[in-house]
Write a protein that binds this DNA or RNA. Structure first.
Lengths: 137, 137
DNA sequence: CCTTGACCCTCCCATCATGGGAAGCCCTAT
DNA sequence: ATAGGGCTTCCCATGATGGGAGGGTCAAGG
């Protein structure tokens, strides 16, 4: 009757049991009911929250973001502007990180294109990694 | 005469003193000379290596990659193909990560574009984070 | 009744790269 | 002599995740 063990909760929500316990330990979710033997049991509402967290993680939100998103999600009187602000700030971070990775990739691709990639030792990739001789101190 | 303390090495190479010691502790660089008082002192060649590591890190290479790149760099009889292989494998990783971030960003941007972002509570972003009701177990 | 296997529990440790900070030694300038 | 700054080592933290040890609990089958 919609009270499931942690392994079942994990199977349903796609969040590992390890992580479910971790979310509880950092206060992201409330401590669930325990049976007499101290086993955790999750209600449908709690499974719902875990699913929400899972989807938020899939979109790359940090625990801190998720904490706020969860509280907005629970709050029927929220302003959508608050949600949007969190999302857009996160989008900026994502774009920044993606741009940094893409820049590295671009540089490396260019260098690799200039590298003959045979058994000769000369290599523009290593040349690029070679730092300029620093000015004397 | 090109024997500098760790702070100077840090200033020259842009690698923090903390990290220089760490590189040594994990065997990425050899233990440098010490003066009588156990202070580390770095030669020009060692500064050169630190600079190489710095540039490799800037391109996102892991320590494990850098370990191999360093040994190729030192090896005059290397094959450029080996360097290129490392670089191209890294490029793949970078592209994969960048693509994952970009996908998240794209999804969030679309959702945010549909969110009015005012003081009304309904929000397509939260709707998207809301997991589908799982099948009963 | 007892064993086996599959759960569950808590607690510690590891990742990866980086930094913070404490406690203590060394040197130089006041 | 003392103050300050640099150096040393050692421990701990990050963020999200997993591995594993050591031990409790329960159901099924010998």
């Amino acid at each position: 009757m919609s009270l499931v063990t942690i392994a079942q909760a994990s199977a349903i929500t796609g969040v590992s049991a390890k992580m479910i316990r971790h979310y509880e330990s950092i206060g992201l979710i409330a401590a669930p009911m325990r049976t007499e033997n101290r086993y955790r049991h999750y209600s449908e509402a709690e499974l719902h929250e875990l699913g929400f967290i899972r989807r938020s993680r899939d979109l790359g939100f940090s625990f801190e973001d998720i904490r706020q998103l969860l509280s907005l999600w629970r709050d029927r009187t929220r302003s959508s502007a608050d949600v949007k602000a969190i999302a857009l700030r996160h989008v900026e971070e994502l774009d920044q990180k993606a741009a940094a990775l893409a820049a590295m990739s671009r540089t490396l691709k260019q260098l690799a294109a200039c590298c003959h990639g045979d058994d000769r030792p000369d290599c523009p990739i290593l040349d690029a990694l070679d730092p300029p001789k620093p000015a004397e101190i």
